[in-house]
């Protein structure tokens, strides 16, 4: 009986059966999950302000093709607010501006620019309409300037909207103003019919 068991040898198998259990151990170390390096948005105990993402040192100049005092980056030519866009006015630019405007400005200024955005309404912020004569006649660089530097109660959006997109928004604001204030004589006869009345 003993020798029969030896030839079958189940006990020897049993002796090594624990080996697969070692796999359980292998799953337990996490040093590759949290590697000793900084990733975006991580806190840091090395830097004084506790941030791993470093803000640029003062007086940093953006590394673009544009010189730092160009119209593209400042909205001003020779100290005066720019009258022209620093890029070509195209349908794509306006469409780009539309998506940016709806994301960043519409919460307060409203989709139509009348100052009746959802936040303005709910939060009780007084937001001026973009449809008044002063803003209709102002240089387009003024919008760029407002977005870049903010104005009174409105904060700057420069850290969220890159300069090219700021120009797109500025151009779109113009389109908005035009859409709400167009001389009916400039429209086709067909369109004038749609206006009704007359």
């Amino acid at each position: 009986m003993e020798s029969a068991a030896r030839t079958l040898n189940p006990s020897r198998l049993a002796r090594v059966a624990w080996i697969p259990l070692c796999l359980l151990l292998a799953a337990c170390h996490i040093d590759m999950y949290d590697q000793p390096r900084y990733t975006a948005n991580q806190p840091s105990d090395f830097f004084e302000d506790g941030r791993a993402m470093r803000p640029p040192v003062p007086n940093t100049v953006p590394m673009t093709d544009e010189p730092p005092d160009s119209v593209m980056l400042t909205g001003r030519a020779n100290g005066e607010l720019a009258v022209e866009l620093p890029m070509e006015l195209t349908a794509e630019l306006l469409e780009r501006g539309q998506t940016r405007y709806n994301a960043y400005c519409a919460p307060c200024h409203g989709l139509a620019g009348d100052g009746n955005g959802v936040i303005a309404y709910r939060g009780g912020i007084q937001v001026p309409s973009l449809h008044n004569d002063r803003l209709r006649t102002v240089q387009v660089g003024y919008f760029f300037d407002v977005i870049t530097n903010g104005i009174n109660r409105m904060y700057s959006y420069a850290n969220r909207i890159p300069p090219e997109d700021r120009w797109a928004v500025a151009a779109y604001v113009r389109a908005l103003q035009l859409s709400q204030n167009v001389d009916a004589n400039d429209l086709t006869a067909e369109e004038r019919q749609q206006l009704g009345g007359q």
Binding site: T90, L176, V182
Partner: peptide, 19 residues
């Protein structure tokens, strides 16, 4: 004689006229 028009049309018009 002041009207409001769809934004798509205004964008076309603006491209024609320039900023």
């Amino acid at each position: 004689n002041l009207a409001h028009i769809p934004i798509e049309r205004a964008m076309e018009l603006l491209v024609e006229r320039g900023i």
